[in-house]
């Protein structure tokens, strides 16, 4: 239960190991050529529109169709599987890990994700709030909006095809919004975090506690 989270233990864990470990897998079958080495620092995508690719991690080549795969986040390369260098691998084979240093804001979000009910993207697409929800957010703010299972909350837009997305889950308020209109969200990534109204004090406690206990932003 979220109410029973041991914050001291959680914070101690983040203090002793303030990193996310992002595993990188082969996106499809093919022959792999690594472009990074263990211990190398890598950067994620940059630019105002995310147009500058992250550090090139590996190339995968199938039927003379090479694809370059870049880092989606910054960090240090660890656990690189050099035994796959030049080898043909299956889709989904783990190739390396990026040890990503967490910022204070990310730690708060990570802890909140253990408390909030997350509603994830059904497909890789761009999302925006349903018009009714958006107008209510504009008037009162997201945290004043209560949603219930079956409510049309979002519109998924892909190739000018708009699909309404219905919320499934327990009733609650929209506490966290993880997407930006016009920015693509990968399938399975959280779109919003929902919180039962009675848990709002707990959420505030988490935020206050982390802000107080964390000395720096990094």
């Amino acid at each position: 239960m979220a109410d029973e989270i041991d914050f001291d233990a959680l914070l101690a864990q983040y203090k002793s190991d303030p990193f996310d470990y992002v595993d990188i897998y082969a996106i499809h079958t093919g022959r792999v050529t690594f472009k990074v080495s263990d211990g190398q620092e890598v950067t994620g995508p940059g630019g105002e529109w995310g147009q500058i690719p992250g550090t090139l991690l590996y190339e995968i080549n199938r039927e003379r169709n090479p694809k370059n795969i870049s880092a989606g986040t910054n960090g240090i390369v660890t656990g690189i599987h050099l035994e796959f260098e030049g080898q043909f691998v299956e889709a989904g084979e783990k190739l390396l890990t990026i040890k990503h240093p967490l910022k204070k804001k990310e730690i708060i979000e990570n802890i909140l994700k253990e408390v909030l009910s997350l509603f994830s993207a059904p497909e890789t697409a761009k999302y925006f709030f349903a018009m009714d929800i958006q107008s209510r957010i504009d008037k009162k703010g997201a945290r004043a909006i209560t949603i219930d299972s079956g409510d049309e909350i979002l519109t998924m837009s892909l190739m000018k095809r708009d699909t309404p997305v219905y919320y499934k889950g327990e009733q609650g308020v929209i506490h966290s919004v993880y997407f930006k209109p016009g920015v693509s969200v990968a399938q399975g990534e959280p779109l919003i975090g929902i919180c039962a109204p009675e848990k709002l004090p707990l959420i505030q406690k988490i935020i206050t506690r982390v802000k107080a206990d964390w000395d720096t932003d990094h």
């Binding site: 630019g47 529109w49 147009q51 500058i52 690719p53 697409a125 761009k126 000018k160 693509s184």
Partner: peptide, 20 residues
Amino acid sequence: YGGLVLRLEDGFVKTEYSGE
């Protein structure tokens, strides 16, 4: 897949699958 491959003014390339 029908995505639009765009070269931005800074020279980087981005592919869009929605928008206009």
